[in-house]
């Protein structure tokens, strides 16, 4: 089973725009998703005006919200199957 890598930008803007809420959601994903996803923080992605930014696989999600991150994770996992 391929693991989907998710990285939440830990830069100044993304921090102030609520990246912690995204990490909270990732930490509390259902076990079925937890098994398929590996997540962490990443240093500034450079899109500071469009945060919070999250990379999901090889895509960058800008203006991310916890819901949008979870939806995109599900889409990416479905596309991999």
């Amino acid at each position: 089973m391929a693991i989907l890598m998710v990285s939440v930008c830990a830069g100044t803007s993304c921090h102030l725009l609520g990246n912690q809420a995204i990490v909270d959601v990732l930490e509390n994903m259902p076990p079925s998703l937890q098994k398929q996803v590996k997540f962490g923080y990443t240093s500034c992605l450079g899109d500071c005006g469009e945060g919070p930014c999250v990379t999901i696989g090889d895509k960058v999600l800008k203006h991310a919200s916890p819901e949008r991150v979870l939806d995109m994770i599900k889409e990416e996992l479905a596309a991999k199957k």
Binding site: C9, A10, G11, T12, H15, Q20, V23, G40, Y41, T42, S43, C44, G46
Partner: peptide, 29 residues
């Protein structure tokens, strides 16, 4: 600094690894 860290990592050709731990919610990791 995030961009500064990236700059140093790039010049050193080394990876920058950001901690997942928030010791104080008002200070980025």
């Amino acid at each position: 600094g995030g961009a500064t860290g990236n700059l140093v990592a790039r010049e050193l050709k080394r990876e920058i690894k950001t901690s997942l731990q928030y010791e104080d919610p008002s200070v980025p990791p």
